[in-house]
Design a protein around this nucleic acid. Structure first.
Lengths: 163, 163
DNA sequence: AAGAAACTTCTTGCTAGCTAGATATTTTCT
DNA sequence: AGAAAATATCTAGCTAGCAAGAAGTTTCTT
């Protein structure tokens, strides 16, 4: 407080404003670090497998599901997509013959999406490539201890800010 | 190695596949933690100030620049936008009377964007609100030590994966 | 000084994903 | 049983941002 009258290079900035600035810059660093890494990861994946980031995400979730299958709504929610948005992603994946739709016998509102054989192979290869890239671009630079701490911090943020 | 013959709940998964899975899941946690937090932050900002996330980012960068002014190309690069994409963001900000374009006297290829008075006020208020939200939703849950470690990890990732 | 090369901005057309609302089905309540 | 509410998917129209390329300006080379 009380430096309002002294004009320095950033024109008359109060201590409080400087504080705000520091915090916003600090979070900007998080944004940049995250995006740089994620974009590099996705650049390699999309180039090697001809998948969009959204499609890759769906495939990985499906390949981990029992019978490689999940109801549309559940999958959309997991992937943080709207139902309308997910319909289009699913359309594209069906067109690429990576998944197919299957009606549910017991509840006719529900449609399952299921990996095709081609989709399962692609998903497994892409997941393996993803892990390899992550070892190289994230785990190696950070080291195991910092990696563990990063995960812990993110877990905290997720729980603190969920819904 | 050597567990291929024993079928467990995920149908015959090798150790290597389990390893891949663990890493991909670990990074998925980072994605989720980051997005949850960022979305909550942006939800509050966009609601209070009628700004898109991209517009907010531009405004904050401008309010920190000398004379509240920057060449289009430099600003686009800082904000990780393509030049075409940035033209449209700038169009919207001009329409909202938050910035204006100004030709450069010495190099007629260059156009500056400059905060209007209204833009400067909005940017300062939004930055202050952003800092307040970050204190509440990020710094408080993490605590100072973990916050410092998070920034350090992100700095490492940024440098490791730049360009 | 003339032409080539590089740089900056803007235009055009495209894609991904969202919101709102339509339709069909199931569940719940009376 | 039948009305009302909830659930699941799809459709239509919208927005943000990208990529490619057009057009103008400057700088470099001869």
């Amino acid at each position: 407080m009380g430096t309002e009258d002294i004009a320095t290079t950033p024109p008359q900035q109060t201590d409080e404003e400087a504080d705000d600035d520091e915090i916003v810059t600090w979070w900007g660093l998080v944004i940049e670090g995250y995006h740089t890494t994620q974009e590099r990861l996705m650049a390699e994946i999309t180039e090697r497998f001809d998948l969009t980031p959204g499609a890759f995400d769906i495939l990985v979730r499906l390949v981990r599901s029992p019978d490689y299958r999940m109801p549309m709504t559940k999958l959309a929610k997991e992937a943080a997509l709207s139902s309308g948005g997910f319909t289009k992603v699913a359309d594209r994946l069906v067109a690429a013959e990576l998944i197919r739709r299957e009606p549910c016998e017991t509840d006719r509102r529900v449609t399952y999406v299921v990996l095709t054989d081609h989709g399962r192979r692609t998903a497994e290869e892409a997941k393996h490539a993803c892990a390899e890239i992550l070892r190289r671009t994230v785990l190696a630079p950070l080291g195991p201890e910092n990696s563990e701490r990063l995960a812990e911090a993110m877990r905290t943020l997720r729980t603190a800010n969920a819904e």
